[in-house]
Amino acid sequence: MRDRVWITLGLIVFLVGITYPIWFNNAAGVRAEAPVLRKPVKGPNCVAPLEYMRASHMELLTAWRDEVVRQGNRRFVAFDGRTYTMSLSKTCLDCHDNRAEFCDRCHSYAGVSPYCWDCHVDPRQARTVRAWAGRPQAEGWAR
């Protein structure tokens, strides 16, 4: 029964710790601001209706991915009859030409880190990478 104090104390410390971000941010007056996204350069038409894209673009991208990689189908006839090439780097980033101010801004706001860019290349990034790539790098930890 003497442990009761310690248990209660431990629980309080735990609760304070886990809720720390909430009250700290409230006290500091930090407000969540909705991210401001950069508008696409080529007008309002997207491969699917705006609402769908906002909510479910990841599902469309996954479906595109499977169609291209596993079925070998690369063309997409959109809901409005327009035809696109199913390609993240070539089609999506052609309009949304600034990944940092479009994809990343919203993703970091939502706290998600999709792994698209581990492999897919943002044309902008390719240009900057080209400037410093090619120099030999130490392999570090490898023998």
Binding site: Y52, A55, S56, A63, W64, D66, F76, V77
Partner: peptide, 29 residues
């Protein structure tokens, strides 16, 4: 279409080899 429906759409169009996505449809090049 985007959610669970997608899986069904994929299965349904397997025979045709094409898939319905967000009101659009894939097609061979």
């Amino acid at each position: 279409l985007g959610g669970c429906g997608l899986a069904a759409a994929v299965a349904g169009n397997k025979l045709a080899g094409l898939v319905q996505i967000a009101g659009g449809q894939s097609a061979p090049g």
